[in-house]
């Protein structure tokens, strides 16, 4: 029996890969192309950071993310295992203690250790946390690689729905586009900036603690950096606001003043899909359609977990 999978973002492509590897016949459908160039996956940070993310999401995230870094390293090129560095400005140092108390898998670093990890940040921060077990990837390249591998293995990647066959099973991975079908799903707005700078070099994602926004700068190689990301409830779509742009750019500037001369390559805004508990789930709706959705900030981190759930559910 064929599985018609809708949605070629990270949830869909990882699920399709897991299903194909389990010997299932899968067809991937997305009107925006495979992989899609719109939606949350396209704007993702690409941090594989279970220990940092557990600060808000709790230990369940670390459990479900087990094996995620290895999964990505086995499936796509460009997974960098260099950890995550967390720093705070001097006025926000109490937040660093709070972050440390809420997370595990880190070591405290002083000015000297920070300079050793990231020479560009030498002399700029006196205290931080280093999470050596974390990794990052470039989401767009990773999704290209997954889609390429699916095609090479004969998985049909379509922009239009195929003619239905008897016994078709359906798996919906469309993120916030599925809000109408899933009453508990909501969109959490996120905004990001892509910068290009030859003056700053970073080896790993750097998080700058901020009272409201989980701010981070992720190096993407070739002097490109992704700065993210806001978190706004209410489901508003549309372009980035000036306030968000200013806050994200200020964060990059606070991390390193040379970012002031960076070129702005892209301002992106989109909606992450989330359930009430901000954890992904595999759900069967009244029409018998399975949904792999609600990955929130963790599409790449929890994609492999969600894919494994889909394989069991659609057995």
């Amino acid at each position: 029996m064929r599985i018609v999978l809708r949605g070629a973002g990270v949830a869909g492509l990882v699920a399709a890969t897991c299903l194909a590897e389990a010997g299932r016949e899968v067809v991937v459908v997305d009107p925006a192309g495979v992989p899609t160039r719109s939606g949350a996956s396209h704007l993702a940070g690409g941090m594989l950071a279970p220990w940092c993310e557990a600060e808000a999401a709790g230990a369940v995230l670390v459990e479900r993310a087990a094996g995620a870094i290895d999964w990505w390293a086995a499936h796509v090129p460009g997974v960098v295992r260099a950890g995550t560095l967390v720093v705070a400005s001097s006025r926000d140092v109490p937040d660093l203690a709070r972050f440390a108390a809420r997370t595990s898998g880190h070591e405290r670093v002083d000015a000297e250790a920070i300079a050793e990890l990231e020479p560009a940040l030498a002399g700029r921060f006196t205290q931080g946390l280093f999470f050596p077990g974390e990794a990052h990837l470039d989401p767009r390249r990773a999704l290209d690689a997954l889609a390429g591998a699916l095609r090479r293995h004969g998985v049909a990647c379509l922009e239009a729905e195929p003619a239905p066959l008897p016994g078709d099973r359906r798996l919906d991975c469309r993120g916030t586009a599925a809000t109408d079908a899933l009453a508990g799903l909501r969109g959490i707005r996120g905004e990001m900036v892509m910068l290009s700078s030859r003056e700053v070099a970073l080896s790993r994602p750097v998080r700058l603690l901020h009272p409201r926004i989980p701010l981070y700068v992720v190096p993407r190689g070739d002097g490109r950096f992704m700065v993210g990301a806001t978190m706004l409830e209410g489901g508003r779509a549309g372009p980035m606001t000036l306030r968000s742009a200013v806050e994200l750019m200020n964060a990059a500037y606070a991390l390193h003043p040379a970012f002031a001369e960076a070129e702005m390559l892209e301002l992106g805004a989109g909606l992450r899909p989330g359930f009430d508990d901000n954890l992904p789930a595999l759900i069967r709706d009244a029409a018998g359609v399975w949904h792999a959705n609600g990955a929130f900030r963790h599409g790449f981190l929890l994609g492999p977990w969600l894919g494994a759930q889909a394989v069991s559910a659609l057995d």
Binding site: T179, A183, L185, G187, R189, R212, L232, E233, T241
Partner: peptide, 18 residues
């Protein structure tokens, strides 16, 4: 209204429904 919702377009959205 501003900081959490970014000027929400719809009061019917899940967060407000909750």
């Amino acid at each position: 209204v501003r900081r959490e919702t970014g000027g929400a377009a719809s009061g019917q959205q899940r967060f407000f429904a909750l």
